[in-house]
Amino acid sequence: MATSVSKLLKSKKSEILQNWMTNQLKDASLREDLMSNDELREQSTELLDVLLNNINDTNLGEPESQDFEPVSEILAGISISRARQGFSPRETGIYIFSLKEALLIALKNELAKEPETLVNATFQVNKLMDSFGITTFETFIKGREEVILRQTDEIAEISTPVIRVWDGILALPIIGTLDSSRTQVVMENLLIQIVETGSSIAILDISGVPAVDSLVAQHLIKTVSATRLMGAECIISGIRPEIAQTVVHLGIDLSNIITKASLASALKTAFSMLKLEVKSSAQKPKTY
């Protein structure tokens, strides 16, 4: 009867760990700045413990086996935290593949006299560790995606400030391209602010919008209609000459919307709508 591979691996645990650590430490890309060697050793010990505890001769060649769930969980945890800490995929990959190397070396040393068992065991360990490698990458990417998603949210939030320029007048500078999801955020923010501040005029400044095509125009028209539905008026300002040209060429009808070239003239319009006047204090003596 051939030697039990799993038992053999278990008995060689400390040696494997030592090898693995050496492998990791000698790698040029070791990130001591992100994780101390002690931490790395702790993490590696934990993973190896769980792996060897759950391994047996039957499941060795079956990465899908339920027994490896705890291993996958730990791996997932490790790679997600690595993704967040800023490890590169290569560094994370080396972490798991250097374990494979350590395992294979242990097998090679111990099974030198049983070539057939060695080949079989090598195949199995290879398969198992490759599948763990895939798991690691999947979760690593997932971790990265979460980071991206969070940043997208943050950008969406900061890129749509609603400014209260005057009592009853809100201004909303839009910077960047207006797509439908962004329009929705802009609209919602604007309308909520209108209700909160009880403002009756909103100025939408689009100087920072690179291009206005028919879709963007449609979004703008929607925003204006929604504002009107709430009982407030909406002025669009910051229409650059190029934008005026494309709008007319595309045949977009903005005639129902109050449009102004600059924020200043929009503000002026808003003042006159609220029956406010701005006076220069230098001309104080002038009375009427």
């Binding site: 609209m187 539905l229 009982g231």
Partner: peptide, 24 residues
């Protein structure tokens, strides 16, 4: 009209013609 309701109405294509609207 609640903000979410206003946006939904616009998407739906309803502009409540014939009535005036005010904030409060």
């Amino acid at each position: 009209i609640q903000p979410a309701v206003a946006i939904t109405l616009i998407e739906l294509g309803l502009e409540l013609k014939g009535v005036h609207t005010a904030l409060n």
